[in-house]
């Protein structure tokens, strides 16, 4: 239930803002993967993505302890913080490579241009409508599973499974099927 989950998230956020460490732990456990995936999508190496994700949470907790956080909206705040750290990391790599050409670095260590990354990450309106159309064509139950699991609120697959009365394995199978259809829809648009 979205509302109860929203209340749960709000309650956790309130406690975390008050300095409750267990609330922070719960929020980190819930949103950490999304932060890592967002960094991977920006072209950050997987080991560095994990480090930056950890640093993201450390920064947020530090800000809370200093009384600089007035509200905590996750995962968006963590994603923004992670993006900032990734851009900062890219600048640092660029500075360190100033003695030599960036091109001499291994390709995966090239600094990520945040602007280019952001452009690539954003879906155009046409892509969005194409994805929505593809989503509208899947079965209502599959769509419900997909929306519960992927609407950005990071509902764990076990909770999705409990809500819709399916096994976790079946939920993941449905997610893969829907991803495949949406990928095809997006690729068709890209190649058009």
């Amino acid at each position: 239930m979205e509302a109860s989950r929203g209340v749960d998230e709000e309650s956790l956020s309130r406690k975390a803002l008050a300095g409750d460490r267990s609330a922070w732990d719960a929020l980190v456990a819930r949103h950490h993967r999304r932060v890592v995936v967002s960094l991977l999508a920006r072209g950050v190496r997987v080991d560095r993505a994990h480090e930056l994700a950890q640093e993201t949470w450390a920064r947020l907790i530090q800000q809370q302890q200093r009384g600089l956080l007035t509200e905590l909206r996750l995962p968006n705040l963590a994603l923004t913080q992670a993006a900032f750290l990734a851009a900062d990391d890219a600048r640092r790599v660029r500075r360190e490579s100033i003695s030599g050409a960036v091109e001499e670095l291994p390709e995966r260590q090239h600094p990520v241009d945040p602007a280019v990354s952001a452009e690539r990450r954003l879906l155009s309106e046409e892509q969005l409508s194409r994805a929505h159309a593809a989503l509208a064509q899947v079965s209502p139950s599959a769509r419900s599973v997909f929306l519960l699991a992927c609407d950005g609120q990071e509902l764990p697959h076990a909770e999705v499974a409990a809500k819709v009365g399916l096994s976790v394995q079946r939920v993941r199978q449905i997610l893969c099927e829907v991803r495949k259809k949406l990928r095809t829809a997006l690729e068709e648009e890209t190649h058009a």
């Binding site: 995936v37 892509q127 969005l128 994805a131 989503l135 929306l147 992927c150 609407d151 949406l182 997006l186």
Partner: peptide
């Protein structure tokens, strides 16, 4: 795959 995941999250969160 990570990029696709981000895009699908965007699509899901904006789905009517």
């Amino acid at each position: 795959e990570a990029l696709l995941s981000e895009q699908l999250t965007e699509a899901a969160s904006t789905f009517p």
